[in-house]
């Protein structure tokens, strides 16, 4: 190539280089922020699960008696049953609106595990159902204890939170 041609091409090459660097840098940046968003979203999921557990276990509608609580998440078994009845009562539809800020658009159920043999003595108790029907969902699990007043015992329990998949 002649020197003149090279010189003429110089600005074009510079432009191309700038564009290339910009493209690569932006792709990197977008990937990073997208993954940050996903991380944040999923960390939020986990944090959300814990937050939902904490809020649920401190609601007067679900909390264990204060003399029971040792500052850890504890839900009263009979109250959980009552909530399930209430949630399934079609005349109480307005209730969901009231508890929506606590639970969000999720289905929340609690399952007791008998530590003697690992069995579940009954089906999971659904304490809230606010998930839109037919959507894809992911389930987050978090662990806590349920207080049973007649035996004054605490049973190991799993809280299943079904949330719409992102």
């Amino acid at each position: 190539m002649r020197k003149g041609q090279l010189q003429a091409m110089e600005p074009i090459i510079v432009v191309i280089m700038i564009v290339l660097i910009a493209v690569v840098a932006l792709t990197y940046f977008v990937r990073l922020s997208k993954s940050e968003a996903t991380i944040m979203a999923s960390t939020m999921d986990s944090k959300d699960a814990l937050a939902i557990l904490q809020r649920a276990s401190t609601l007067p509608e679900l909390s264990c008696a204060l003399s029971e609580t040792q500052g850890t998440a504890c839900i009263d078994l009979y109250k959980a049953w009552f909530m399930e009845i209430l949630m399934n009562d079609p005349t109480q539809d307005m209730l969901k609106i009231r508890y929506q800020p606590i639970f969000g658009n999720t289905n929340v159920s609690v399952e007791i595990i008998k530590i003697e043999d690992g069995s579940s003595p009954f089906n999971p108790i659904q304490i809230y159902n606010g998930l839109a029907p037919g959507v894809d969902y992911t389930v987050t699990r978090t662990y806590f204890t349920i207080h049973e007043a007649t035996t004054d015992g605490r049973a190991f329990a799993i809280m299943h939170i079904a949330r719409e998949s992102r």
């Binding site: 040792q70 998440a73 978090t142 806590f144 049973a155």
Partner: peptide, 16 residues
């Protein structure tokens, strides 16, 4: 999140 909540719950569960 899971491991810490598991341990807390485990510790408090009543021994049969």
């Amino acid at each position: 999140q899971q491991t810490s909540s598991f341990l807390v719950a485990l510790k408090e569960t009543t021994v049969p």
